[in-house]
Each structure stands twice: as C-alpha cells, then as structure tokens.
C-alpha cells in the first residue's frame, strides 16, 4: 500500500478521486433531486463531439469537452424547460449527434488515437497536474455557487412554482445549475469516462436520498460514498488489472443494489 502511494500517478489518481467526489456528491444530489439524470447523460455524450473536434484541431481535448458540454447543457436545459413535447426525443437526438461528431472528427484525425478511448472509458491513472488544477477550479466554483444559493436551489428543486411566486430567480438558478452540470461532467469524464458518468453522478446521491431528508447531509454522504467508490474501484482495478472506470462503476452499482435492498427490507428504518 505504501509502495502504491509512492507512485506519482497513484497520488494524482487519489487526489482526483477526492476532487471528483466533491463535484459528483454536490451536483449529483441536485441532479437526482431535480430529476435531471437524462440531461446529464446527454451532456456527457455530446461532450465527446468536443473531444473529437479538439483532437482534430490539435488543442487540449478538455477545452473542446468544456465548450461542447456547456453548449449542450444550455441547449438541453432550454429544451427541457421550453418545449412541452418530445423533450426526451430532442435530448436523445442531441446526445447521438454529439457523439457522432466526435467519432467523425476522430476518423478525420490522422495518426494514433488511443487517447480518445480514455475519454470514453476514463483513465483516472492518467490524470495530469493540469487536470487536477482544472478539477480544483471546478470544485471551488461549484462549492461557492451552491453555498451562495443553497436555500434557493433547494426551494426550486422541491417546488419551482412556489419559488417563482416568491420571486426567486428561478431561471437564473437553472442556468447556473446546468452550467455546473456541464463542468462536472467534463471532470467526471477523466475518471470514469463519459459512458459511465451517469452512474457516478447519480448512484451516491440516490443512496443518500434514500436514507436522509436534509439536502446538505445528502450532499456530504454522496461525496463520501463517491470517494469510497472511486478509491475502492481504483484499488480493485489495480490489484486485478482491470479497467479502472468500469470497476468504479461496478463498485457503485453493487452498493446501490445493496442500499436498495436494505431500504426495501426496512422501509422506515434510519430516517
């Protein structure tokens, strides 16, 4: 174990686990409570278009991912709020188009493209110092915004109509939230890959929401669980030589099923 910790890539991976868990715990709670899981999945996949484009242009894929992810967040957020019909279809179509753009640009880019795979399936062991700094920046932004607007975010998540009647800035809060989702998605992409982002964003918060009734507590529990899943998955994948992203998700999935079974078993227990 100590030997493991002496590796630079492992230190980076553990730091990434902490930073990513903060974002997934906090934003994941809002995503789950506001029922925005599908949008988050859409944003994640659309972001791949940005990764492909950035590869083609020869710039850092993170910038492409951020640009596509934010654009997708706003577009999908707009669709979810403004169109009454077929919102899931529209979001699904954007989801697929984004992904396809990424693949086409990857085709057009000459040379070795293995790195593109790491955005699909994640590679926490390849996290660089630059990545860590970006993650830290996103965390600081997310924590500050959520702390600043906590009571309003909670109110709009619970009952948007009432919040509107109280003249809370409901639309502004929504824009802030989708932007935070977009940024968190890019962060999570490094760790578990875009295909599996939904799991890490939703499982910890969903477990928290099963047992707790205070949004702040759910955020903390989700952060803790996310950290356990990421580090646990990372260690298992290291010792058994498995893909880290997929192992992390399977650990989360196992916990989720366990929590669900326990919750069913004792409907009213630890509230």
């Amino acid at each position: 174990m100590t030997e493991l910790l002496s590796y630079g890539f492992m230190q980076n991976a553990l730091m990434a686990a902490v930073l990513v868990s903060l974002a997934s715990g906090i934003i994941g709670t809002l995503v789950v409570l506001k029922r925005m899981v599908f949008i988050s999945g859409g944003v994640a996949h659309t972001a791949y278009g940005g990764v492909g484009l950035a590869f083609y242009l020869g710039v850092n894929p993170i910038f492409g991912a951020v640009a596509f992810s934010l654009t997708a967040s706003f577009l999908m957020g707009y669709v979810q709020r403004k169109t009454r019909q077929r919102q899931d279809t529209l979001i699904g179509v954007m989801w697929a188009i984004g992904m396809a753009i990424g693949i086409i640009f990857a085709d057009l880019t000459p040379g070795y493209k293995a790195d593109l795979m790491s955005y699909l399936f994640g590679s926490i062991l390849a996290v660089t110092n630059t990545d860590l700094l970006l993650m830290l920046a996103v965390d600081i932004l997310v924590i500050s915004l959520v702390a600043l607007f906590y009571k309003e975010l909670q109110a709009t998540a619970f009952d948007e109509t009432f919040a509107r009647v109280r003249n809370l800035p409901v639309d502004l809060l929504y824009v802030i939230l989708v932007a935070m989702i977009g940024l968190s998605v890019v962060m999570l992409m490094r760790v578990v890959g875009l295909i599996m982002i939904i799991a890490l964003l939703t499982v910890p918060a969903a477990i928290g929401a099963m047992y707790l009734k205070n949004m702040k507590h759910i955020m903390w529990l989700a952060t803790g669980l996310s950290l356990i899943f990421t580090v646990g998955g990372l260690l298992i994948s290291y010792y058994f030589n498995l893909s880290s992203g997929a192992t992390i998700i399977l650990v989360s999935g196992a916990f989720y099923l366990g929590a669900l079974a326990l919750h069913r078993f004792c409907q009213r227990c630890p509230e």
Binding site: L33, R35, L148, F149, K151, E152, Q154, A155, A157, F158, D159, T161, F162, A163, R166, N167, L168, P169, G208, A209, L212, K213, N214, M215, I218
Partner: peptide
C-alpha cells in the same frame, strides 16, 4: 397532487421556504 412526494426534506425546511423571497437571495 403535483408534488414529488418522495422528496427528501424535513417539514421545518419546507415551511422555511415561505421565508425566502427575491429580495433576500443573498
């Protein structure tokens, strides 16, 4: 009927929403 009846929040926190307003955001 329009409520998400499964939302994790305490009674006290629900009523506290009545104390929020656009003027008191910060």
């Amino acid at each position: 009927a329009i409520f998400d009846s499964d939302f994790p929040i305490s009674v006290f926190d629900v009523v506290k929403m009545g104390r929020l307003s656009g003027k008191r955001v910060f």
